[in-house]
Amino acid sequence: MAAPLRALQAVSEAFASAGEGRASARAAWQASAHEASRHPSGRRVVATPPATDEQQLIERAQAGDQPAFEELVRRHADRLYAVVLRYVADVEEAEEVTQEAFLRAWRAISDFEGRSQFFTWLYRIGINEAKRRAERRPAPTTVSSLEDEPLEDAPDWSEAPALRAEQGELRRELERAVRALPVDYRIPLILRDIEGLSTEEAAEVMGLGEVAFKSRLHRARLAVRRAMDEYFIEANR
């Protein structure tokens, strides 16, 4: 298991064990922070295939070798689908967008210059396709405002009983909070925090500079935190 994940698991376990209290949570958090500092990326390790191998597949695909492109599909389609699914309305549309993105990528593979990683290029095609479709739909009514100021009585999550008791429900609430973000804020959070891209990669997918990207990402995180704070406060009543 990657070190940052191991450290974060330690945090979770400390929070999950009722009665151990704040001291163990604090120790776990500190372990996490130290791990993060040792690993400058601080990110989940994304299973990206060896670059040279992938490079050969891309070059063969650019020479018209469809089986080589199909290997790229096998490597990246499910990941792209997972990203798109959090953007569009349902699983069928997510699958259509994923298929369309790969068709577009195949048609344009000769234009791929290798200045970015293949999957960031692919994500960009997929997200543009999802955006195109989203623009044809009426705006959803459930989008939350970007309230990113913490609540006055915001709980310390390391002491939130609901976090320990109901992991499944917590997950559903978190999904809901992410889905309720305005799209321009949701995608940075999906790419960086859920998919584990680096800031540089995710900013590139979005076509944004790093400063602008981080501004959206941080606001999105704070809005999700606020939504979850409200959930914890409600759960504790």
Partner: peptide
């Protein structure tokens, strides 16, 4: 800091696949 550490950890956990079937056959 503790709260945001947990938030980021929980967000990473959301990356678990939500679908048992792969989309690869459909794309191919």
């Amino acid at each position: 800091l503790r709260t945001l550490t947990i938030l980021l950890w929980e967000l990473r956990e959301l990356s678990a696949p939500e679908r048992e079937m792969s989309v690869v056959p459909g794309v191919l």
